[in-house]
Design a protein around this nucleic acid. Structure first.
Lengths: 158, 158
DNA sequence: CAAGATTGAACGTTCAATCTTG
DNA sequence: CAAGATTGAACGTTCAATCTTG
């Protein structure tokens, strides 16, 4: 196997980037058109809604969503300001906090899904025929699994 | 068909986003580790290298790369400052300009490919077996083709 | 010191306004 | 006015430093 990719691999790569870039743009555009916040808010609200009353620690959200600590810190600050989440000091580990979805956050998530859901239908479901969503998911899974998690580069920078 | 997506469509969507997000992160990280610029520079340099001596108009780059006018304007300013491209007023249409790759830009592109190429091998080629890159490309093409170009929203904003 | 989290400053992106020429 | 392109200001992201508690 060469160090450089085959034409087929390059084509699959180019289309992976193009398909996700275009799809994301369309979803973000539709959310914005209804004065709704960016997609990343949906993911946070979704995780928090799943976690129920206990909420999640920021570092748990980080690992589930593959976000950087500082990124999430600022994102949660914005969501807090908007009343979509609430943050309380953790009772035992006082370095940390617990993040919970608010009722306003649940409502926001509902309104976002009303835009997001139909967009997924149009972008993924409609262009494919029976069995193809499963086939696509299976191939993408190989890429995800075949790709070790990005190594922590902090050590290298120091 | 429901207005809301099937579980299989949601799973394919989630993995599409995750696979591209993770892959992009890894590529950007590797470029940065060698003090090379972001991936978007590679795409610009690639298009310009293809276009040869004539170069390209910024609006041609825009449509090929699906970038916004203002985004490209600032990107080209940075690339110009780095000596990777040169911009000259268009001879006939004096509103516009022509962008060309420089020899420094060609050299930069070569060094980027030395990182980018092997990353594509690892991220796309290595995890798949014979025939699968083609199958993946075929499915992704359906998504791209099934997704009309993002409409121009300028009218709606005015 | 490590883990959990935040923050100032630098940088990149986006919006809306603006500029120049056709 | 339209097309091609840029830009000030607002906003979001990133790096590196910092803060607090275990």
């Amino acid at each position: 196997v060469s160090e450089f990719p085959s034409p087929a691999a390059i084509q699959a790569w180019a289309r992976l980037l193009r398909a996700s870039q275009r799809s994301l743009e369309i979803v973000e555009e539709r959310l914005k058109a209804r004065n709704l916040p960016p997609l990343v808010w949906y993911d946070v609200l979704h995780e928090l809604a799943q976690s129920g009353e206990e909420g999640l620690r920021p570092y748990e959200l980080e690992s589930r969503m593959l976000l950087k600590q500082y990124h999430l810190s600022r994102l949660l600050a914005r969501m807090d300001r908007a009343g979509a989440v609430e943050r309380v000091r953790h009772a035992r580990d006082r370095r940390g906090q617990v993040v919970r979805i608010t009722s306003r956050g649940r409502e926001l998530r509902r309104r976002m899904w009303a835009v997001y859901g139909p967009a997924i239908v149009r972008l993924v479901q409609a262009p494919l025929v029976e069995g193809e969503p499963e086939a696509l998911a299976r191939l993408l899974r190989k890429l995800i699994d075949g790709t070790p998690v990005a190594r922590d580069t902090r050590r290298a920078r120091r």
